[in-house]
Simulated assay, not measured.
Amino acid sequence: MKKKFLVGLLSAAMVATMLTGCGKKADTSDNSAPTTAPTQEATADEGTAKATTDDAATSDSTSTGDIVAKSAYHFEIVSKGFQSTYWQAVYKGASAEAEKLGVTINMVGPNSESDIADQVQMLNSAVNAKPAAIGLASLDTKAALDAITAAQNANIPIIGFDSGVPAAPEGAVYANASTDNYKAGAVAADGMYDGIKDRVANASGPVRIGVVNQDATSESICNRGLGFIDEMITKLSADGKTAAVVGNDYYVQNVKSPVVDEKSANVIIEVRVPSQTTTELTAIEASTILNQKDTIAIFGSNQTAAEGVVTANDNLSVLGTGEGQIIGVGFDSGSVLKAAVTSGTLYGAVTQAPVSIGQKMVDLLVQVANGETVSNVDTGCQWYNKDNIASEEIAQNLYD
């Protein structure tokens, strides 16, 4: 059957700024009405972004692989935003899988990942739509608690994706399709350490590693930042070096690895978080770190933060692998990061598999709507640099 896709579009202003049903439960621990346009490009409109697929096949059973939709289900999906091409890649995977399975999705998200209240409104609207299940990447589970409880009371299962729905009420979230962000942060630290190990070993005094995180609330960003810090401290310790963690209180207080006082540390790990999630504000935080004379490396923990690092460097020209330059590492993808990695401005980056996240999330939504048992799916991550960025294995996970 012919399917029609109604998707909301990213406004030109946002593109310029980016230089970012009840099933068996598995054991698991994450009112505005957006406008739509008849196009398959995604966008934002007056504080809301939306992507919709309609007119799914009405056959009794449609399948892709081992996944079979027992009915032409409709699902509501609430993402953390549409301000970066990362979310467009997630949507691409979700919409393609929905088409294959003969189901429909309505995917929405706020313009900014700082817009928690907007996301809560969208989740309330999703619950009121009475879908077969809801996909949710929560910005702030506590703020969304009433809406999540309402979904539970209405017997609407929730499938988490990306950051999931951390600290959700027991039984509300059936499974998650997401990257293990703590492990992903560790992958970034491993990649960076290859580039700074000799500098740390040969330093005549303390050196500084910067970490720019876009927030200190979402599970994905928090765990990714902590995974990076803990792994970096582990590697430093193995080489006989001590570390101190300074800056944002959340990260300072939640580091698992043992740290020392800043005055006695060989390495200072400085964590900075902007007041709002924008490339411009993360660039300011990155500039503060890059301007310090003892800085040898910096990590931007997602697309927005990494683009902020690159933007800061546009004025400072300090990133690179040459003598006296600062090693920069990013996370996620997008045209800005890809260009920076290809040119060597960034030493490397870690990519998730956003298209796969969208696909696996829809698979889980179908399975839970079918009444099947579901469990968490780790969608993985990979380190990439200028040497392997064009390889088929890496390129399939990168987006513009």
Rank of each mutant, 00 (worst) to 15 (best):
T242Q: 12
A243P: 14
A244G: 08
A244Y: 07
N248A: 14
N248W: 08
N248F: 11
N248D: 15
Y250Q: 08
Y250C: 12
Y251L: 02
Y251H: 07
Q253C: 07
V255E: 07
K256L: 11
S257C: 12
V259P: 06
D261H: 12
E262N: 13
K263I: 13
S264I: 15
A265E: 04
N266T: 07
I268P: 10
E270F: 00
E270D: 10
V271T: 10
R272L: 15
R272P: 08
V273A: 03
P274R: 05
P274F: 06
S275L: 10
Q276L: 10
T277A: 08
T277H: 08
T278Y: 05
T278I: 02
T279A: 09
E280K: 09
E280L: 15
I284Q: 08
A286P: 11
S287P: 06
T288L: 13
T288F: 05
I289S: 10
I289D: 04
I289P: 09
Q292D: 12
T295L: 09
T295I: 04
I296H: 01
I298K: 04
I298E: 03
G300R: 01
G300F: 01
S301E: 09
S301L: 07
S301T: 15
T304L: 09
A305W: 03
A305C: 11
A306G: 02
A306I: 05
A306K: 06
G308Q: 07
V309D: 05
T311Q: 09
N313Q: 09
N315F: 11
N315D: 14
L316T: 03
S317C: 09
V318M: 11
G320V: 02
G320P: 03
G320N: 10
E323A: 14
Q325T: 13
Q325W: 12
I326P: 03
I327V: 14
I327Q: 02
G328M: 06
G328P: 07
G328D: 02
V329T: 05
V329P: 09
V329E: 09
G330D: 06
G330T: 11
D332T: 02
G334Q: 00
S335Y: 12
V336E: 02
L337P: 04
K338F: 01
K338Y: 04
A339Q: 07
A339D: 10
V341E: 02
T342I: 01
T345L: 07
Y347E: 10
Y347A: 13
G348I: 05
A349E: 00
A349D: 12
A349S: 15
V350P: 01
V350H: 00
V350K: 03
A353E: 15
P354L: 00
P354E: 09
P354G: 05
P354S: 01
V355Q: 14
Q359R: 14
K360Q: 15
K360G: 14
M361P: 14
M361K: 12
D363N: 15
D363Q: 08
L365W: 03
V366L: 12
V366I: 02
Q367C: 05
V368T: 09
A369I: 00
A369K: 00
E372S: 12
V377M: 01
C381E: 15
C381Y: 14
W383R: 13
W383G: 08
W383D: 06
Y384L: 04
